[in-house]
Nucleic acid binder design. Structure first.
Lengths: 225, 225
DNA sequence: TCTAAAAAGTGTTGCAAGTACACTTTTATT
DNA sequence: AATAAAAGTGTACTTGCAACACTTTTTAGA
C-alpha cells in the first residue's frame, strides 16, 4: 500500500471546537450562549462553536472561536473532552472537541457579542442547549471546579493587583459555594506565588485592603522538578 | 446559506484513535507497542492506532482497535486527550484522540498480537515513539495514576475473587511505587464495595489468604446522589 | 467631633486522613 | 520438629482541613 492509500481509504470528518466560555463579574459566573440563526436547530441555544480549518492547530481553533466572539485573546483555556457519537450533530457527522475558557466580563467586546446573537446567561439560568451541549457544559464545569482546587484557575480574570476579598469572590463563584474567610486566607498564605505587593486598595473599603499579585515565575518553578 | 453549505465550506480531516494499552501481570505494567511496517515512519515504534470509520462512535473505534490487537473486549478504557497539532502526523493532517486501556496479560490473544507485529514492553524500557506518541503515553500514565488514587482503576485486571496481596501488587504497579501493607489494608477496609467473599485462596500461600470481590452495585451506589 | 457603617484582618481547637513503622500467625514442606 | 513463606495486625505521630466570631481601621454623615 502506498503511503497515500494508507490514509485515503479512511473517511474524513468535520472537526469542530465547542467553547464553554465562562464570564466572571461581581461574584457571578455566566456562560456565553448563542441563539442559532441557521439550520440545523435554528433558534435554539448553543455553545460558541466553530470548525477547525486547514493548517490550524485545534487549540488555536478554540482560541479563534473565543476571540471572534469576545475580542479576547490570551485566556485561560483548557481542553475538556472530545465528543464523537455518530448522531450527535443531526446535520452531518461532526467530531467536536470541547474547551472551556474563563474571561473577564469587564473586558469583552460587546459589539462582537451582539453581532453574533450571543448572550451572557448566569449559571443557574442556563437553558437547554442543542445536541450534546448540555453534557459539555456539565463536563466543563466539573473539570474547571476540580482544577480550581488544584491550581490557580482564573487568576487572569482579576486585575494585575487584586485584594484577597476579590480572589475569594472569584473562587466562590467558580466553586459555586461560600468559603470561610480565615481558612481561605490561610490557604493562600501558603502559596508563595501569590505575593503581597505592598500597595493598598482604598476603592473598595474604608480601611483599605492589601493588594496581591500572581507571580508566574514562582508558580511555574514549583513544578519544574 | 443552506444547511449543507454550512458544513461543506469547512474542511474534513482524518480522525484517529491512539490507544495506550497497559498490560498487567506479576506486579509489572507493560505497554503494547507496534513496530510499523508501513510508511510513514516504517520500522519505528508506535502506539496501537486506527482510524474512526463512518458510522462508528469514537469510543467504539478505540474499543475496536484494542480488540483487533488483543482480542479483548469490555475493558477499562478512558479518553485522555485529543491531539490536533497541524504537523503531528507528517503524512497527512490527522486529529488523534488518545485512550488508555488496562488489560490482563494472561488473557490477551498472543496470535493477534504477533500478527500485528506488536510487543509488550515494560514501562521503564519504553523506546522513543513516533509522532507525539511519547507525549500521549506520558499524559495517559499521569491520568491513569491520578484516577487510581480516586477510583478502583484496574479491578478488571484481577480475577473475579482476589486477595489483598494481589490488589496491592496491582496498585503498586499502576502507581509505580511501593505501598505500606498495613496502610493499604486500612484504606481498603473503608471501601464497602470491596467485600470479603469468605473464600480462602491457598494457591499463593501456605497460610491461605482471604478472597475479596468488587461489588459494582455498592460502588455505583456511592455516587448516585 | 462623634458615631455609625463597612470592609479588612486575625487564631484556636477538633477531627479526619494519611504516614511511618515490626512483629505474630498459620500452615505446607522437608 | 524445624523451617520457610506469605498473611495478617495496631499504635503513635503528623498534617491538612473545617468550624467558628470578634477586633481594627477608616470614612462619611449626623
Amino acid at each position: 500500500m502506498t503511503p497515500t492509500a494508507y490514509y485515503s481509504i479512511h473517511p474524513k470528518f468535520h472537526a469542530a471546537v465547542d467553547c464553554i466560555i465562562f464570564g466572571f463579574e461581581e461574584g457571578e459566573i455566566s456562560l456565553l450562549l448563542l441563539q442559532r440563526n441557521f439550520e440545523p436547530a435554528k433558534g435554539e441555544w448553543s455553545l460558541a462553536g466553530g470548525f477547525v480549518e486547514d493548517g490550524e492547530n485545534i487549540d488555536d481553533a478554540a482560541r479563534r472561536v473565543v476571540a471572534e466572539l469576545t475580542g479576547l485573546n490570551d485566556l485561560y483555556m483548557r481542553q475538556v473532552h472530545t465528543y464523537g457519537e455518530v448522531g450527535r450533530d443531526p446535520g452531518e457527522r461532526v467530531l467536536s472537541t470541547a474547551y472551556y475558557a474563563l474571561v473577564d466580563l469587564k473586558k469583552y467586546d460587546r459589539e462582537l457579542v451582539r453581532a453574533h446573537n450571543a448572550f451572557w446567561v448566569r449559571l443557574p439560568e442556563i437553558p437547554h442547549l442543542i445536541f450534546d451541549h448540555d453534557r459539555m457544559v456539565a463536563d466543563a464545569l466539573r473539570f474547571m471546579r476540580y482544577q480550581a482546587t488544584v491550581k490557580p484557575v482564573g487568576i487572569n480574570l482579576l486585575p494585575e493587583e487584586f485584594t484577597l476579598t476579590q480572589l475569594q469572590a472569584l473562587y466562590e463563584a467558580i466553586l459555586g459555594e461560600p468559603i470561610d474567610k480565615r481558612n481561605f486566607r490561610k490557604r493562600i498564605a501558603q502559596m508563595d506565588y501569590i505575593e503581597k505587593t505592598g500597595h493598598i486598595d482604598k476603592t473598595l473599603s474604608r480601611k483599605g485592603a492589601a493588594l496581591y499579585r500572581f507571580n508566574r515565575e514562582k508558580y511555574d518553578g514549583n513544578f519544574k522538578i
